[in-house]
Design a protein around this nucleic acid. Structure first.
Lengths: 336, 336
DNA sequence: ATAGGTTGTCGAAGCGCTTCGACAACTAAA
DNA sequence: TTTAGTTGTCGAAGCGCTTCGACAACCTAT
């Protein structure tokens, strides 16, 4: 393994000079710089990460905590993870992947050991156990998701309240009067992951203003659960013509069931999904949807973290405005 | 930040003693051990990762390279990533997430800098650019996937050849005679990711033995692409009654299209998917499928890596035997 | 010509840990 | 009782880097 000292010797300069060439923290004459850079090339030098971290107390690593469960919005998480990794590299950082499994201990471990300079947390619960630790430490962090108390924290998320409102508006304009919300699995609500509630609140309050009647039913994904849920909804409100689906894995089953019952989409009923665009465009009907901006959230999280690491950047909550894309699954309400 | 030296002082022993308590590399009297452990607790000590890596030239980090594209088997990759992270933690390792973006440079960077002790590569192409580097370095690695030349490498993968054969057998036993394979997107074949070809080869050769006629068509995911593909297949071989689907995102569209054309599943046509169990059970029809054992591959990769790091473990290729689970999407061929 | 500033380079200290050799204090065999 | 081994602890060196202060060499304005 090639060391700084070897590069220095090869280039005929001192070790510190090589270090300054690498970091740019002091000015170096053009000649020296070139000689050093050539030596680095020729010897195939790569700075040792451990030594660098020890000496500078900066690891150039960002920790990303992703939930262990794979029961929920998997593609979204994957997209966020990839966006985080890609953007981190752009700024010279690597990404350490932590699963939620360890919970608060993982936060302690990372901050305590200097493994990472900063962290991004996903799947934040309303009253998340990890938050007190984050507030105590001076290590920068960004949450993807919104806890109940955001004081002293930086958060990014889709504005799910506005998302719900947007769905209500779209259906109202099309003339629908009775709508149903197919929510996430009950476990998601029990866990108090805020986004589901926020969507519902936004949708309900806007619906009230617009005179829509709303029925909300949580739903495990899958065909069988969806069948039960749909039957109950239509039993209770036979006149339901609009559906808002938050649980990705309920979308296809719902479409299949509606078809099976002879309810045409979008002629008889309209369906809006809250999901990544990729899911919306690959479904069996091209779905009118509100996109979950995974890339954007990942990028924002990284950039804000970098800003904090550089001393810029303050705590703030950023809610990304939702965008509804009309595709083939929504249309005017049937005239009764 | 608490250091080893502070713990040592607090416990009234030398720094090296604390280190040995931590590592267990020398015997320590019960009394001393307890005193040290109490001090560690009381002070909330966490060893500094950089210092440790520098002194021991072991980072206790495993690098995981995942493909950048999200066009393919996303849930599988996510499951593997989580399995890797979870199992790595069990052995005291953390996981560094690299995207395929940097290609071979990422390999050089990681091995050169001592950032990670070992690496796991996913999405391996038949003639992958990264392989020569892996053969040169003495850093252990495991591939998830199978390149053309496996000499000097360790690989895990589902036995896709046997998977193809298994699908053929299942359909043959049910009396089907004309079957179609809905393959991955053309890009996947162009990229020479071996698994698609291997599936096809296994399926074709077993079909020949069993007297099945096989039509293979690559297919982008999504409804529209599937519609075109299906139309062509039925045009060319109207008597097709069995489908094997390798592209996850073609499954639902296929089911929707078949339904729409009045072809009942499984009465008129049978469908086998090659996909994670979760996808198979959540589809609009509970799918007969060959599972992609993501968890198992992730676990195996980590365990083999650990074995190599500990000096045990040699290069080998492990092909996991496929398992076909019969669900509701396959049945006897209709009697003509 | 001189004082005051820049610029470019170097040497040395030190980051927090692991690990080697040394050695005192025992124990077991001769 | 002596010798040889075992066990538990310590001190010191060193891992490869960053960074601080020092300083020679050169400007630029007086």
């Amino acid at each position: 393994m090639v060391t700084l000292a070897e590069v220095a010797q090869h280039a005929g300069v001192s070790a510190s000079t090589v270090s300054y060439v690498l970091s740019g923290k002091r000015s170096i004459s053009a000649g020296t710089r070139q000689r050093v850079e050539r030596s680095i090339q020729e010897l195939g030098y790569h700075p040792n990460a451990g030594a660098r971290a020890l000496a500078s107390s900066r690891s150039n690593i960002i920790a990303l905590m992703i939930p262990l469960r794979t029961d929920m919005y998997v593609p979204v998480m994957m997209e966020i993870a990839i966006a985080v990794a890609t953007n981190a590299r752009i700024h010279g950082y690597d990404v350490l992947l932590l699963t939620g499994e360890e919970g608060p201990d993982a936060v302690r471990r990372v901050t305590g050991s200097g493994l990472a300079d900063a962290m991004i947390l996903m799947d934040v619960e309303l009253d998340d156990e990890r938050l007190p630790l984050l507030r105590e430490t001076d290590q920068p962090s960004v949450l993807i998701g919104l806890p109940a108390d955001t004081s002293g924290l930086t958060c990014v998320d889709l504005d799910f309240g506005a998302t719900g409102a947007l769905c209500a508006e779209h259906l109202a304009i099309l003339g629908h009067r009775d709508i149903a919300v197919i929510g996430e699995a009950p476990a998601v609500y029990e866990r108090h992951t805020g986004f589901a509630e926020r969507t519902l609140d936004g949708l309900r309050s806007r619906s009230r203003e617009l005179g829509l009647r709303v029925l909300h039913r949580p739903c495990e994904g899958g065909y069988d659960a969806m069948a039960v849920t749909l039957a109950r909804i239509l039993d209770e409100r036979p006149g339901t013509t609009g559906f808002v689906v938050q649980n990705e894995s309920a979308v296809e089953p719902l479409l299949a069931l509606l078809r099976q019952q002879g309810r045409a989409v979008p002629e008889d009923v309209s369906v809006i999904a809250i999901c990544p665009d990729q899911v919306a465009t690959q479904a069996s009907v091209r779905l009118t949807s509100v996109a979950i901006p995974a890339q954007e959230m990942g990028r924002y999280a990284v950039e804000h973290l970098i800003a904090k690491l550089e001393g810029r950047g303050k705590d703030e909550v950023v809610l990304i405005a939702p965008e509804l894309t009309v595709r083939a699954s929504t249309g005017p309400a049937p005239t009764a």
